[in-house]
Design a protein around this nucleic acid. Structure first.
Lengths: 102, 102
DNA sequence: ACGATATACATCATATCACGAGGTATTGTA
DNA sequence: TACAATACCTCGTGATATGATGTATATCGT
């Protein structure tokens, strides 16, 4: 997929991945794989940004000797998802313009 | 609309705006206004990039004493639009993932 | 007659961003 | 005992949209 188009959905995809259940980096990548492939460097960049934007909070735990950071969505994060749904409507209009035969 | 999301459609919108009829900068902005607002600096950056990518060709003319550069879409530009339609299908899958209640 | 607005182009600096390349460390498997 | 998988992280780079700014002419209202 086009790089620019990806960028438009990356953040929200990550939020959606932790929407119903707290999750951690490695798992998020696996869960998203069927929908959208993303590398670790990309994901951790996004997670950091979303944390700074207070759309999620982090909780560090230890699991079988390994560090695991669980990410939990905040109300602000949920709002972002709802916003995206509205933006999608706008996007549909744009798509019509592009795809219509004139 | 979210800045990132915009970026994903800007290029293709401009291509769509000249798809059926050659057009020039100022007119493209006006034509796109109901669908997507963009500034001159943004548009000219995009036009330059699309020209470098050989998705459009330019023809300079003089109209009522003013310079006018008409932009004409190439087969490559038309291909880009078709590509976008395919990417849109992929995007629909992503949207479902984001919007679905789980 | 004159100032404002519209038309029409262009460039530059800045901030944001995704991603590859690289790094650390442990556990499970062949 | 290698190697893959799990799990985290950082840095540099290239691409990008946009505001600010600049140039020049035509048209319109008062």
């Amino acid at each position: 997929m086009d790089a620019q188009l990806r960028r438009g959905v990356l953040d929200v995809c990550v939020l959606a991945a932790i929407k119903n259940e707290d999750s951690y980096g490695y798992k998020i990548i696996k869960d998203l794989k069927p929908v959208l492939e993303l590398s670790e460097s990309t994901l951790y960049t996004i997670l950091k940004r979303l944390e700074e934007a207070k759309m999620l909070v982090v909780r560090s735990t230890e699991f079988e000797g390994r560090l695991r950071k669980y990410y939990h969505i905040t109300p602000l994060g949920l709002t972002r998802i709802e916003e995206f749904k509205n933006e999608w409507k706008e996007l549909m209009g744009i798509y019509s313009f592009i795809a219509e035969d004139r």
